[in-house]
Design a protein around this nucleic acid. Sequence first.
DNA 1: ATCTCATGTTAGGAAACCTTACATGAGTGG
DNA 2: CCACTCATGTAAGGTTTCCTAACATGAGAT
Lengths: 124, 124
Amino acid sequence: MSREIRRTMPLLSMNIVMQLTELSARQIRYYEEHHLIEPHRTEGNRRMFSLNDVDTLLEIKDYLDQGMNMAKIKKLFAKKNEPVSTDERDLSDSELRHIMREEVRQAQRMQKSSIRRGDLSRFY
Amino acid sequence: MSREIRRTMPLLSMNIVMQLTELSARQIRYYEEHHLIEPHRTEGNRRMFSLNDVDTLLEIKDYLDQGMNMAKIKKLFAKKNEPVSTDERDLSDSELRHIMREEVRQAQRMQKSSIRRGDLSRFY
DNA sequence: ATCTCATGTTAGGAAACCTTACATGAGTGG
DNA sequence: CCACTCATGTAAGGTTTCCTAACATGAGAT
């Protein structure tokens, strides 16, 4: 629980998130527009990102590399954040299962980013 | 070793280092002047701090709270960074021993900073 | 009573970031 | 093949954050 506080602590500025993720500012802001991340703001309206945000961005990047579009990614994240249902049946339509399969199948191909997904654990 | 890379990675801007340490920008720059830290610089000359830097700053803060002055703190850090001598005798004058005793004695009193020294490990 | 040290404060300028708006190239569907 | 949409690039104009340099100051030591 206190671990969650750490990961959600807004420590990082645009600059270094761009470096860590190799995304452009434009991309990062676009993903925020689509509510995939919601970085903190300083008093002066500057975005401050948490390590969780960086993880999410790396995930988004992977999904886009796989040819997924915003709409699908949004759904995917929506599912993830759903409270765990005791009845599994009602959260998986065939499309979601397909996406999940894609994701698994792709797990080997990820060799491109400066920081591969999951590697962020190096930082905390 | 790769762990050392993490801790020395320049991730943090002035802003958040001020928050994490509860030091003023003036203080942080002053300590840099005295070569107690040497933050990275962006292309545009902005300071970027590592977690190690933050640790060091918290240490400095403690020492100053104890009434130590820059000169002493500098010596202390110099000793710390000295290669470990096989002959212990030549690194400890009575003054250093005194300082160390002070530090231990003080270990209970530290309750003030937003982040107590050592607690930074929460972040990586 | 003066000096030094650690820090505050102010000024002027540069870098980084903000939003908004328009441009564009790659796919997609009619 | 034409029009659309989507993800991203880019430019403009404005604000915030950070920079250095310089001077101010209060507390302790000499």
